[in-house]
Computed example of a mutant assay.
Amino acid sequence: VMKEWVHDSHIVMVANPFWPDNIPSVPKPKIEEIVFRMLDESPAFAEYEAGNLDVAGVPLSEIDRVKADPKLSQELKIAPILCTYYYGFNVTKPPFDDARMRLAFSLAVDRKAIVENVTKGGQEPAQWFSRPGLQAAPTLQTHPNLGVKYDPERAKQLFQEVLKEKYGGDVKNLPPITLMVNQVEGHIKIAEAIQQMWKEVLGVDVKLETQEWKVYLKTLQTDPPQIWRLGWCQDYPHASNFLKDVFYSTSDNNHTKWGNPEFDRLVDQALRETDENKARELYAQAEDILVAKDAAIIPIYWYTRVTVTKPYVKRTFSVLGGLEHIEKWDIQQ
């Protein structure tokens, strides 16, 4: 039960005193009071190290140190969650009004290098949008070659094709290209790595811009830049929540300005399909349109949750992206 909510500061939850004792699946909470502090990742981690927080996320800049530290490494837990990290294009803004150019930029991203050298949190390189593990979503076992992988040669070929056709074969004739991310250290590090890949593979200088989160969300709703970043975590664990709820042509979550009637038809049909294997095939066809044929987005990685927890906290770890069973937690001191 919520006891207090101070905006931009904290939320205090207390155990429900009226909760019955006899429901094994939803037991009576063991912890009397929990305080959620609203802090960005780096300040929260500093508070954890100072002993003022019992649970915190690990900022990207601290992962190597945490893994190497004899004490913190014991408190570290990396686990998959049902979320996808991606870049979107504004498909109305040149040069990304051409699907071949969008695909070239996607194929030039070395996702494996990002998760191994930048994020270092056990994330998986993403070849498509709906994270494996969701009901009816394609998996790397069922669809190993679906979607996009790092392919610098094909990226160069597509890039040169569009450059010759539309820009006189000269990179200097391209409009200035901007990648925008929200002002978070980890997102900036990832963006800088991808900026470097585009420079090395395609020979393009992409400008990086940052905005504070609230301003950034407004920008995405009103006038998205040519390339921008977002993540999506499940509201319910089904492929439809990723594909239909985010990239349907009329979805408010779709900031690409892209729509494809065939994609819409496939995700509608998949949602009505009662055979999960048939539904998975339909979602795979929809993914192929989204990330390869039309390349409206660049899937980058499938998330993990990287957290540290004090040894006296006995807790659960949800794969559902933050939907924790706090009532099952305990403090043992």
Rank of each mutant, 00 (worst) to 15 (best):
L208I: 12
L72G: 11
S42M: 04
F45D: 04
W329F: 11
M101N: 14
A136F: 03
I298G: 15
V215I: 15
N52T: 14
I31D: 08
R37Y: 14
S318F: 01
K214H: 04
D264L: 11
R154H: 07
K30L: 02
F18M: 11
A155I: 06
E287S: 00
K214P: 04
P261K: 03
F45H: 04
P43H: 07
L146S: 08
P225M: 03
V306Y: 01
V319G: 10
F317L: 06
S42A: 03
I300V: 15
E32W: 08
Y303H: 10
E75I: 09
L179N: 04
P175Q: 02
T84M: 10
A155P: 01
M180F: 01
E212F: 14
P225C: 01
V115T: 02
A155S: 12
Q226W: 11
T92N: 12
P261Y: 08
V58Y: 03
K314P: 03
P17S: 09
E324N: 09
G51D: 14
K328Q: 00
E192P: 01
Q269L: 11
Q157T: 13
Y303V: 10
L39H: 01
D21Q: 06
K156C: 04
E262I: 13
W5Q: 08
K166N: 04
T256F: 07
L140D: 14
E47R: 12
K199D: 15
G133A: 12
Y167G: 07
A292Q: 15
E212Y: 11
E165F: 12
Y236H: 07
G133E: 07
L202W: 04
T139C: 08
P43M: 02
E324Q: 10
P29C: 09
N22A: 06
V319P: 15
E185G: 02
A239M: 14
P175D: 03
P138D: 08
I298F: 13
Y248K: 05
W302A: 03
G321I: 07
T307G: 06
I23A: 06
W5A: 05
V181H: 05
I31F: 04
E287M: 02
A295T: 06
T316H: 07
E49D: 09
V58A: 00
I289S: 10
N241V: 07
L134G: 00
D151H: 10
P261T: 12
Y248D: 10
A15S: 14
Q127K: 13
V14P: 11
K244N: 12
D110K: 13
Y216N: 11
G147I: 12
T210N: 07
E327I: 01
F45N: 02
P20E: 07
P175I: 05
E75T: 03
I23L: 08
G51F: 12
I114E: 09
H143Q: 14
N173F: 10
P176A: 10
K214C: 01
E33V: 13
Y48C: 01
K67F: 08
Y87A: 04
T316M: 09
S130H: 09
D40V: 02
R305F: 10
E32M: 13
E47I: 06
F105E: 02
V184W: 00
E276F: 14
Q135N: 10
G57W: 05
D97S: 02
S73I: 08
F242I: 13
M38G: 11
P299I: 00
Q183D: 04
V14E: 15
D264T: 08
Q160P: 00
V171P: 05
N117E: 15
T316W: 02
C233E: 13
F45V: 00
T316A: 03
V35L: 11
K310R: 14
T92F: 05
Q285A: 13
G169V: 05
Y87M: 08
